[in-house]
Write a protein that binds this DNA or RNA. Structure first.
Lengths: 337, 337
DNA sequence: CTGAAAGCGCTAACAT
DNA sequence: ATGTTAGCGCTTTCAG
């Protein structure tokens, strides 16, 4: 059996309170007493029981991170960043997977499993804007992503439309005029696809380039394979284009591979720009020009925001929407000029 | 303030114990009483306090998973599998990152943060065999990976040498004779590189193919970029080969890309086989033949083993070494014939 | 500066 | 079938 405060107190011949004072670095302990207590702690190999501490203090020292799947590159890198940021704040991270399934997402929000944590960082995929009432929960919650806007909780996300517009403008500035997109979701207004499409359209319009529906590649999923498939369709359709804006890096990599397979040179014949700045995009051949949506910043800001909410308890200020800075990472697949 | 057992008991006009019985599905509760309690629970929105339950029961319902980095594909997919398996067992998973750093790995083993969990699934990278005494801890621990063998704790891992031998034999059976390897670690005997190299050498020897040192590509890190670099060196060296066995999929993908860039056809001119069976290898072009080392099985077995240990407490049977079945996944980069 | 004692919310042994 | 009660190990008033 592990040693308890009581054991230490007994051994050091002081009260339990004094031991507690020593452990929590409270002042008002005579150096001499402190030393005696400390040696008892060492002798017994005492380690405070965090569960008991949690019960008493109402804090667990853990946060939950809920994502669709950690094995998807974007979420893997997000999880890495969140875990690292949480650790710096002295918190451990408990990872939940929802599979991007609306039912599981809603269930998670009221799961007793969350009781083990002080708060939740939540990246839904299956929920939509009509579900936003479900996000009014009685524990600290920070929302990520672009499935839901206007919920009464803190929300940290990226500037999808602006970033997509900038990506498109970047291609235009480098002299491209016929820019295909890959990853469109028909009829979607919010959500990554909808918002990025909007940015693309804005950029075209401002540049006076007519929108050509034949250059739109539609695909629900955004895995590498989908990018390849969509690009095959575009090529087969006979459409001509000199650049591709893929709505994420997986799509871009799949599309790029098919372009090369078809004998088209990237970037000479077709420039390719992605979105996400996954680590591996620096090492592909050619390396991928992409939008860094500020993933690291989002992760650390989400943790900071959550930590603040946890500290505040109730009676806190209004929830905020915070947007990350993005930047275009220029690499080989789409040089600036 | 959240409702407690007491509040529910008061509202339902029963004792606290009866409420507890209802919640824990104990028998000996009259249906009528049960219904009354249940409606009080619903009315108050009562949710059991897991922290209190933990303190009382000595179980937290959480396990820890420690990996180098969740953003590395292999560990991302491992984490996905572990989290999923743990969830099936009613456990949540707390993810810790060590960065593959020996000091952090050792520190983690004695971290108070583990107090929040019932046990640990640990995949070290920086530790070596001499550190195995550190794995004798007083909580349930399941070791993964191939950095440490013979420690006094359960160990679930893959058949590295056998699988590597089988991969090499597969290439030989398909008619290849000059098989390059990518990912060698000079002088390593255990660890993924050492064990896989051993399997490669065994296969060559049994087939009567002389070992050619010029076909060995050495690289400490196993990212895609390293595979590309090593392959460039091999090609530049003038060495000739008709197949490549890469010690993991990242290396294989990097190498394959460089081969194609150099105008060599995969698999016609050079066959490529990897190791890991990452999800994305099914979707590369060409798709990658690779060794599935049994990652899913390892994850679920690790969780099962840990659950068993947790249930047993002390006075338990000897720790076991369990090895996953592997299989060769035949895809385009190295057809069977 | 230190000690005594009251709980945090729950479970389980023991009573009825 | 249901009620009473003693802690799990800690923090934290409140006294001394």
């Amino acid at each position: 059996m592990a040693a308890t405060l009581r054991d230490v107190a007994q051994m050091a011949e002081v009260s339990i309170k004094t031991v507690s004072n020593v452990i929590n670095d409270h002042p008002h302990v005579r150096p001499e007493t402190r030393a005696r207590v400390q040696s008892a702690i060492d002798a017994l190999g005492y380690r405070p029981n965090l569960t008991a501490r949690s019960l008493r203090s109402g804090r667990t020292g853990a946060i939950a991170l809920a994502v669709p799947e950690v094995s998807l590159s974007y979420f893997a890198e997000l999880a890495d960043a969140v875990i690292t940021a949480a650790e710096k704040a002295g918190l451990v991270t408990l990872v939940e997977q929802t599979g991007g399934d609306r039912q599981r997402e809603l269930a998670l929000l009221t799961s007793p499993r969350l009781q083990m944590t002080d708060g939740l960082i939540f990246s839904p995929l299956g929920m939509d804007n009509d579900d936003r009432a479900h996000l009014e929960v009685d524990y600290p919650l920070v929302l990520l992503g672009e499935r839901v806007f206007g919920a009464r909780c803190d929300h940290v996300t990226m500037r999808n439309t602006e970033a997509a517009k900038a990506a498109t403008e970047y291609l235009i500035a480098s002299g491209r005029r016929r820019i295909a997109v890959v990853g469109h979701h028909e009829g979607e207004e919010i959500g990554s696809a909808g918002l990025r499409m909007k940015g693309y359209l804005q950029a075209l319009e401002e540049a006076g380039i007519p929108f050509d529906r034949r250059l739109v590649g539609t695909t629900g999923l955004w895995h590498r394979w989908n990018g390849a498939m969509v690009m095959r369709e575009l090529l087969a359709s006979g459409a001509t284009f000199d650049a591709v804006f893929a709505f994420n890096d997986n799509l871009a990599l799949g599309a790029m591979r098919v372009l090369q397979e078809a004998g088209l040179r990237v970037p000479q014949d077709v420039a390719v720009i992605g979105f996400d700045n996954l680590e591996e995009t620096a090492y592909t051949i050619p390396s991928l020009t992409t939008v860094d949506p500020g993933r690291e910043w989002i992760a650390s800001t989400a943790v900071e925001t959550l930590v603040k909410r946890i500290a505040e308890g109730a009676g806190a200020p209004e929830p905020e929407l915070t947007l990350a800075q993005f930047r275009i990472v220029e690499r080989e697949s789409a040089p600036r000029r």
